[in-house]
Simulated assay, not measured.
Amino acid sequence: MAAGVSEAFGAIDWSAPWLAPWCGLGQPLAQQLLQDDPSVHQALQTAAPKGAPVVFVPQSALSEGTAYEQYIWDTRRVPTRDNLHDFFNGLVWLQFPHTKRRLNQLQAQAIATHGVQAVRGPLRDALTLFDENGAVLQAPEPIWQALRARNWQALFVDLRPLWNEARLLLFGHALLEKLVSPRKPMVAHVCQAPCAINLAAHLDAWLAQDIDTQRWAGKPFAPLPVLGVPGWWPANGDAAFYADPLVFRPPRRGDGG
C-alpha cells in the first residue's frame, strides 16, 4: 500500500471503546495490512469463512457506469479499494453478512425498479444512511425516552448510571472510519434493539429481519452524538461537555416520537 494508506491503518486505536466489537476481527487484519502489505480485498478475503455470501475483489472489477449496489447483488462480489472506508465496510460484511445482504438486496431492487437517479428516494436514502452511519442500541426504556426527546441532560447526566445496562454497537462503516480521528460532532443514527435478545449472538439475524421497507423508509433512527456516550470519551466525564448546542442540539418540533 502507499505510505499514506499504511499510516491510516497504523492510526487505528483498537483500544477505543467503539471498536471493542470489531477488535478481534479487525486488529489482526490491520496488522496483516501493515506487515505483509497485501491489498485490502486480499486481506478481507483471507478472513472470509467458507460459504460467505460475497467475495472481495479489487475496485477495478467494477466497470465504469455500473451501479455499485447492483453489481454486488448480481455477482456477489464486493469491489474494494485500499482505504479505511472499504476496510471497515469489509469488516461489517464479515461480521453481519445477513444484514449487509438484506441492505444490498433492497438497494438493488430499488435500482432495478427506478434506476440510478440524482435523488435516491426515501427507502434508499434510509438504507444508505444506516449502512454508512448506523448503530444499534439496546438500552432500558428511560434511555430511549430521553434519546428520542433529545433531552441530553437526562440522557447523559441524570441517567448516566443506567448506561451500565446499555449496549451500543456501531454498524456504519463510514462512521467507524471517521472515528479513527474522533471529533465531538460525530453522530450515529441509532435503531432500537429489544433488550430480550442476546445482541452479541443474534444481532445479525435480528437486524436483517427488522429491516422493513415501509417502516425504514421513514428513517426510524435517533441521532446520537457518539462521543457523549458515558465511558467513550474522557472529556464527557464533565457535565459541561454536553452544554454545546452545536452538537447536543435542542429538540425540534415533532422530535421525541
Score class of each variant (00 low, 15 high):
residue 164 N to R: 08
residue 127 L to S: 08
residue 168 L to V: 06
residue 158 D to F: 11
residue 168 L to Q: 01
residue 138 Q to K: 12
residue 152 W to S: 05
residue 136 V to I: 15
residue 175 L to K: 01
residue 162 L to H: 01
residue 142 P to L: 10
residue 183 R to L: 02
residue 191 C to M: 14
residue 134 G to E: 08
residue 149 A to Y: 02
residue 119 V to M: 14
residue 133 N to V: 04
residue 143 I to W: 03
residue 182 P to I: 00
residue 128 T to F: 07
residue 177 E to N: 12
residue 176 L to G: 00
residue 139 A to Q: 03
residue 160 R to Q: 11
residue 149 A to W: 02
residue 151 N to H: 10
residue 153 Q to I: 05
residue 122 P to S: 15
residue 143 I to G: 05
residue 122 P to M: 05
residue 142 P to A: 08
residue 147 L to C: 13
residue 155 L to Y: 11
residue 152 W to E: 08
residue 150 R to I: 12
residue 182 P to Y: 04
residue 151 N to P: 05
residue 142 P to F: 12
residue 156 F to M: 02
residue 146 A to L: 00
residue 162 L to R: 03
residue 179 L to D: 02
residue 169 L to H: 04
residue 186 M to N: 12
residue 173 H to E: 06
residue 166 A to W: 13
residue 131 D to F: 01
residue 173 H to S: 12
residue 187 V to N: 10
residue 158 D to A: 14
residue 146 A to D: 03
residue 129 L to K: 00
residue 115 G to K: 13
residue 153 Q to W: 06
residue 154 A to M: 06
residue 125 D to T: 09
residue 188 A to Q: 04
residue 180 V to E: 14
residue 159 L to T: 14
residue 164 N to D: 14
residue 138 Q to F: 14
residue 176 L to H: 05
residue 137 L to V: 03
residue 133 N to M: 07
residue 166 A to G: 15
residue 161 P to V: 04
residue 149 A to I: 04
residue 121 G to M: 13
residue 172 G to L: 06
residue 191 C to D: 06
residue 131 D to T: 00
residue 148 R to W: 14
residue 137 L to A: 04
residue 120 R to I: 00
residue 186 M to W: 13
residue 151 N to Y: 06
residue 118 A to D: 06
residue 151 N to W: 10
residue 183 R to K: 10
residue 118 A to I: 09
residue 153 Q to E: 12
residue 167 R to W: 03
residue 145 Q to T: 15
residue 145 Q to R: 06
residue 130 F to Y: 10
residue 119 V to Y: 12
residue 169 L to E: 12
residue 143 I to Y: 04
residue 152 W to V: 04
residue 151 N to G: 15
residue 147 L to R: 13
residue 178 K to H: 11
residue 162 L to M: 15
residue 116 V to H: 09
residue 122 P to T: 02
residue 174 A to V: 07
residue 159 L to A: 03
residue 125 D to M: 01
residue 125 D to Y: 04
residue 137 L to C: 09
residue 148 R to A: 14
residue 165 E to I: 05
residue 175 L to N: 00
residue 115 G to C: 06
residue 180 V to P: 08
residue 153 Q to K: 11
residue 188 A to E: 05
residue 141 E to D: 15
